[in-house]
Design a protein around this nucleic acid. Structure first.
Lengths: 135, 135
DNA sequence: GCAGTATTTAGAATTGTTCTAAACTCCTTG
DNA sequence: CAAGGAGTTTAGAACAATTCTAAATACTGC
């Protein structure tokens, strides 16, 4: 079989989101190639470069909805700017300061031992490892 | 005994910062008790409650200068808000979502194995572990 | 004490993000 | 396939966190 041609409208519908033109355009940019890290501003610039103008507010809306639907993961590494990661599986990040470049690395080779128990009345949600590096 | 009275002016001077009234007032709030996590807004409210009014801009300036001087560490855990940690030693964080509560835990019991090498042309700066928990 | 530079300040400006209300579009139904 | 309603999009205003600006003030060395 020749490469899966991702049916974006269907994927969006499966996530409980109406496949509007702008959501499909954004999904295409986000999910068509390999994994990516984007900011709202960056994605807005990209989508404007296509023949489908989309407002910045819609980019923000879509990113938040995609994240809530589990299609994206939000990564908080730098003050004042949110990154969204199309890789929603288990993995961690390299963050190159001060450029703001972000790279995934798989978590399956990484072992974290000796973590204390969560504070009383809380349960573990996720463990983020951010390896900060400099040029 | 009257306990150790930390000489804040001297500590500031040692860090290369002039011991102005407002910096000393902020240092007192930050370093007098045990380790703390503060936001600029929060610290501003606190310092206003003392008899020494300090502008919000000065709080931001001071926090940034203290961080640059190594007296504080900035912790990025939530989008749109920076936390400053008076604990500059090796340790990691619990972050209670969605309240925004932050707790330290020492890193000496924690072992992280299997981290990949930093990307070419970069050197390791720090490894942050954020354990996200929920109520 | 005085000059001189660093610091503080109020308020404006900037940046990133969310909100609002009106216009539009997807989808279902007839 | 027209119509209607709910869900979306949009431009622009609003908001929140932070930084900048230019003028006033405070620390420090002499």
């Amino acid at each position: 079989m020749t490469g899966t041609s991702p049916d974006f409208p269907a994927r969006l519908r499966a996530a409980g989101l109406r496949p509007t033109r702008q959501r499909v355009a954004l999904a295409r940019l986000l999910f068509e190639g390999g994994h990516r890290h984007v900011t709202a501003e960056g994605l807005h610039v990209e989508v404007k470069a296509t023949r489908m103008p989309v407002s910045l507010a819609t980019v923000y809306n879509a990113l938040n909805q995609f994240r809530d639907a589990g299609l994206l993961r939000e990564v908080v590494v730098a003050p004042g700017r949110s990154y969204f990661d199309t890789n929603t599986g288990h993995h961690h990040h390299f963050f190159v300061e001060p450029d703001g470049e972000l790279h995934d690395f798989p978590s399956d080779k990484v072992t974290i031992a000796g973590l204390p128990a969560p504070p009383k009345g809380t349960r573990l949600a996720r463990v983020d490892v951010i390896v900060r590096v400099r040029r």
